[in-house]
Design a protein around this nucleic acid. Structure first.
Lengths: 318, 318
DNA sequence: ATTAATAAGTGAAACGTTTCAATGATGTTA
DNA sequence: TAACATCATTGAAACGTTTCACTTATTAAT
């Protein structure tokens, strides 16, 4: 494997000269530098990451840890992060599961963006003591060494609920996702506050786990007990779609008999029938903002963190 | 940052002893080893990847380079690769775009699995000379240093076409994706051979680019010129869905007026109306097999490469 | 002509590991 | 008891870079 020594030998100069030349140090005159660059290029030399990282004590790399590679949700987010990071000369690597553990512990990256629900707050705080900076997504970890970034769930759900109310719905139920999650909590709070603002009370509440199956299950129970509200506001799209499907199979017409709304605006939301009203987050933009925050953390700047706003996508489901 | 020296100091022994102990070298008696492990654990020591990699000249890491994070196609594939890799003590990292370039050039990983259409064969061959092993997906690069793995496009499309023919269709057209791609070529060849086997000729052929839009465009032209075949076999699902949508908007009934088939079995295939007949690849399994191949390449074993078979998903679109 | 300043280049230390080769201590064999 | 294995441990070299501190050559300033 070709290394810096080989370049130096061919160029007839010292290792340090090569290193300086390749790192654009101004002490090497352009004529020499370009000659060395040419040689390096010719023999295909590139500094070995391990050696460079060891010496420089950084890797110019940001790790993004995600729960799994599923879902279109991550797609745009990762693309957004990637664009911004590479624009500033950083390399992005993505990992899941136990790979994440290894990468974190061995300090393969300079900074970490975590969107992995399988990593506990406790582990997170522990890691944050030896490895900074860390940005955690969609969760609040109250620790000085961790920066948490979330979308503005509260505000978006507040506005969605107001829109629902403006359509004349009165008996409005809420379908929770996993209850103690940040997403669910803030969405629910926004929902409740909008209700209160218009002097309404919640008509009923159910608890699912963000999956379509859990939505179906809830709808089945509703039908059995005949406790159908006028409208069900759901904590996310998948549950909403599960609910809609079961309701329709039992002959209910949506939105005439009952309205349903979701959150996230997954691709399916505009394909299912009726098209699901939801909240869209521009995750590409959000990813970029996350990256910007990470970049300034890497430069040890103090940054105030941004909350991404949601956009109401009102379609045909209520 | 805590390093091996710190552990040695606390343990009252040499650096080498710590290193051997932590690497389970049998020359360190268990009693000493466990004492050292305990100390390392207590102070949160873990070997720095950069240093270890530099010395050992490997990183226990496999890089998976993908075109983008979009699409459910990658999801299962990556999960499959990941599961197998971590089971054998390897770490998986994923990258796109320019990040991939950096990671490759700086030799951050021991092995690379490439599924990125933006990397040219030429670049690939160039890289393969200084960086091995490399597995390339869904493409044939005829080079001794590169292992290419593809799904069995030919066979799956052959069987799908036979099924189409068995339903009585005679005037069967083909809708290409990007023409020179491996996927398209072999699918088309399978299609043609099945036709020939049953003494049929291709009725017509169109060229799209694997996107829904290109499918729509093709369908529009078909309607305008009134050249509608009995059946259109498409190189992938997205084009098939684009074609179906436009055809339906113009009043054609699918499958009564015309049949359509896809390939890939994307999620939407079972949601669109009518449900699209397609070919499903178990990409999780395929990912695992890719990883197995990579692992044996890393051990410098000779391996014969596997071709993943597709499963016919016959639904309502023909 | 002397001194000072600048330019171009270099030698060697350091980063944190792993691992070879060596050491001394202990036990075993004849 | 001498010779020899075995065991536990260690010092130091090496991996491929970057970068500090230094040298030598050249130019500028007086």
């Amino acid at each position: 494997m070709v290394n810096i020594k080989d370049v130096a030998k061919i160029a007839g100069c010292s290792i340090s000269t090569v290193s300086y030349a390749l790192n654009d140090d101004k002490r090497i005159p352009e004529v020499t530098a370009s000659r060395i660059r040419k040689i390096a290029d010719d023999i295909g030399y590139l500094p070995l990451a391990a050696a460079r990282n060891l010496k420089k004590r950084n890797s110019n790399t940001v790790l993004v840890a995600i729960s799994d590679f599923g879902g279109p949700v991550y797609h745009e987010l990762l693309d957004g992060i990637h664009q911004e990071l590479t624009k500033h000369g950083y390399t992005m690597i993505v990992s899941t599961g136990s790979s994440t553990d290894n990468l974190l512990k061995e300090r393969m990256a300079d900074g970490t963006i975590i969107s992995d629900i399988n990593i506990s707050n406790q582990t997170l705080i522990q890691i944050s003591k030896i490895l900074k900076p860390i940005i955690i997504l969609d969760r609040k970890v109250h620790d000085t060494d961790i920066v948490d970034m979330t979308i503005d769930n509260y505000d978006a759900m507040y506005r969605l609920t107001e829109d629902v109310i403006s359509k004349g719905y009165q008996k409005i139920a809420y379908c929770h996702g996993v209850k103690k999650t940040h997403d669910n909590e803030y969405r629910f709070k926004g929902f409740l506050d909008a209700l209160k603002k218009h002097d309404l009370n919640i008509s009923d509440e159910y608890v699912g786990n963000f999956t379509k199956q859990s939505g179906s299950k809830i709808a089945k129970k509703l039908i059995k007990t005949n406790q159908i509200p006028e409208m069900i506001v759901c904590s996310n799209d998948e549950m909403a779609i599960g609910i809609m499907e079961v309701l329709q199979e039992s002959g209910y017409n949506i939105p005439n008999d009952i309205g349903v709304s979701g959150f996230d605006d997954i691709e399916l939301a505009s394909y299912c029938i009726p098209k699901l009203s939801s909240v869209r987050i521009n995750r590409f933009e959000w990813g970029r903002k996350i990256a910007v925050t990470m970049l300034s953390l890497l430069k040890k700047h103090k940054t105030d963190v941004h909350k991404e706003q949601g956009e109401l996508k009102i379609r045909d489901s209520y």
